[in-house]
Amino acid sequence: MFDVVVCKKKQEAENIYSFELTLPEQGYLPKFQAGAHIDVEVRPGLIRQYSLCNPAGKTDRYLIAVLNDPASRGGSVGMIEQVLEGQTIRISKPRNLFPLDENTGFTLLLAGGVGITPIIAMAEQLQQLGRDFELHYCGRSRTSMAFIDRLRHSPFAAKVILHCDDGDAKQKLNLDTVFGATPEDSHLYICGPAGFMDYVLGQATDSGWPEARLHREYFSAPDVASADTAGDEEAESFTLRLARSGKELKVAADQSVANVLLDNGIEIPISCEQGICGTCLTSVLEGIPDHRDYFMTAKEHALNNQFTPCCSRSKSSVLVIDL
C-alpha cells in the first residue's frame, strides 16, 4: 500500500462519485491494463476494491468511481461521506482479475450501473487498438448513469447503446437482438449488479455462448444465495488442516475459515469478504470445498483445487489447505 492524494472528487451521476488520485509529489503511478482494480484503504482496517476507469497507459493519475450503495458494509459510504478532496489515502498497486483479451475478432461489452467503470476503460483500449466492439450500457435512468458525456464525446460514440429503464420500449435491453447481431466467435465482458449479470450470463449460456468466451466481474455477491450455498443455518462444522505445519483447526458452523485462521494468528490477504475479488484464493490439497464465491467459474469450482476462505466452507469433514 502507498499514499496518494485525492486531487479531485466529483459527482458523476445520482449517488455516483468519482475520485481522481495522484501521487503526493509529481510522478507516475504503476502501469495497468483495462479491467484492473486497486485496493483502497477507506479507513484503517477497511479495504475495498474499485476498478480503474481512466484510459490504460495514462498513469499520471488513477480514476475510480464509487456508488453510494444503501446496502453498503461501510466502503462506499465511507468513501463518499468521509474521503474529501485534498485528503491522503492509501491504495495498492493495480491488479487485474478481469483482463481484456485484445486479440479477439469482436468484443461485446455490457455494463449495468456503476459497472461501467472497468467497461469504459476496455472500450477506450479496444478503440485505441482498432478492434471491433459494441458497448451496451444499462441503467435505471440517464441521471443515474455515470460518464454519459464522456461516452457521447468519445471517438467510439457510434458503438455505444444506452438502455434506460425509464425510457421507451426501444431503449430496453433485448438480449435476443443483441446476441443475434453478434458474430459467433465474439467474447462478452460484463460488469454490474449481481442480478443483472446473472440474468445476462444465463441468457448467454442458453444462447450457446461457451464459458471460455464469457468474462465477468462482480462488485457484490447476489442478495439471495443459491440452495447449495444457502447460509450458516445449514452449515456444518469441519476440520481445517494446514499442510505446511500439520496444525488442525475446528471451523464451527457460524465461523468463516478466514476468521478461524486470523483467531489463530495466521494472516491471509482478505479484502471483499464476499467471495467476489479473489484476493484470499487459497490452494486446496485434500477434501472437497463448499464453494460459495462468485469469483471462480463453474469449471474452476469443479477442479476443487482452490477456494475462498472468506466465505467458502467444506463439504468433507476435513479440508487440507496449502498453508
Rank of each mutant, 00 (worst) to 15 (best):
L188A: 13
D166W: 08
K170D: 14
V178M: 02
I161K: 15
K172N: 11
H163M: 06
K170P: 00
R140K: 14
S154L: 00
S154E: 05
E134M: 12
F156K: 06
F179D: 03
I190D: 11
T177D: 13
D185P: 02
H187D: 07
Y137V: 14
K172A: 15
M145D: 05
R150H: 10
R140Y: 01
A194K: 11
G139K: 04
R142Q: 13
P155Y: 05
K170T: 14
G139E: 01
S144N: 07
D132P: 04
P183D: 00
D176H: 12
A146L: 07
A194V: 08
I161G: 01
P193L: 04
G167E: 08
R131E: 04
I148L: 11
L175V: 01
D185I: 01
D149K: 14
R131G: 04
I190Y: 11
D166H: 10
H163G: 02
F133R: 01
R152M: 09
F133T: 06
S141M: 05
E134H: 14
R142V: 00
L162Y: 15
M197C: 10
G195K: 04
R152D: 15
L173I: 06
A169W: 13
R131S: 13
G180Q: 00
K170V: 10
R150K: 15
D165M: 04
C191V: 11
C164E: 10
I148G: 01
M197W: 07
T182C: 10
Y137I: 12
M197A: 12
C138Q: 01
L135K: 03
F179P: 02
L135V: 09
T182E: 02
A157E: 12
S141T: 14
H136G: 08
G167R: 08
D168W: 13
E184N: 08
Y137L: 12
Y137N: 07
R150G: 02
L173T: 03
A194H: 09
L151R: 07
S144G: 05
A146M: 08
F147I: 01
T177P: 00
L188H: 09
K159D: 12
A181S: 14
F179N: 00
P193C: 07
C164G: 07
M197D: 11
C164H: 12
T182N: 01
R142E: 12
L162F: 15
R140S: 07
I190N: 10
H163A: 06
T177L: 12
